[in-house]
Design a protein around this nucleic acid. Sequence first.
DNA 1: CATATACGCCTAGAACAGCTAGGCGTCAAG
DNA 2: CTTGACGCCTAGCTGTTCTAGGCGTATATG
Lengths: 111, 111
Amino acid sequence: MPEDKSEFLKGTLDMLILKIVALGPIHGYAISQRIQQISRDFFQVQQGSLYPALHRLENRGLLGAEWRATETGREAKFYSLTKKGRKQLDAEMASWERISDAVALILRTAE
Amino acid sequence: MPEDKSEFLKGTLDMLILKIVALGPIHGYAISQRIQQISRDFFQVQQGSLYPALHRLENRGLLGAEWRATETGREAKFYSLTKKGRKQLDAEMASWERISDAVALILRTAE
DNA sequence: CATATACGCCTAGAACAGCTAGGCGTCAAG
DNA sequence: CTTGACGCCTAGCTGTTCTAGGCGTATATG
């Protein structure tokens, strides 16, 4: 019986990525670092989750991509939020609020 | 493009079920009604999600099951929380707190 | 009387997200 | 020279959920 080591709420990754990108253009590798850092090492985004997610979001027109050079001189794919992505982020954040409220409602039900 | 109608956070269903059952022995059909009712019609548990979930939980030894009669005289399968299920529920609730806190942390990050 | 609706259980199949576990190439440090 | 960080990627498995059916009984409604 395997314990769940890596905790991640399915369905929230896209939102978290959009939110990070909303802070400014950033490349994939840095996104995962940023998420991990801001969440105080709680979330660890696996690359096998990250890159497919980025491609999904790009294909859906929520992210724009552009190859540019990093501060350290490397080539990297920088993502930025499109207008559509902005809307989607807002919607998902509102949705998250409603959902987590509803969950809290149930969890705090005592008979 | 269609909005997502049915909102449900993958991975929370088991926890919600355990929580409802923790309130007292209850049968499947009533569980879905209870979840819907407590969440003020926000969550609608599909039967195709509900019953497989119940079987999973029973197989994992988190729920015990017993056929009994309803108040209205029908036969129904009443589930109750096992000791192991209680522990699991506590763990999942704690986990939910940590996760939702971490998500909130990211969502509230402003640069 | 017929038939629809609620109750109450179930399953098979598809869809989809995420993880595992690989791979590639470059550069700096030891 | 080899390890590790950087930075990208993919194929395939697993697991949860939804869709869309099915079954049987009771009660209400036309």
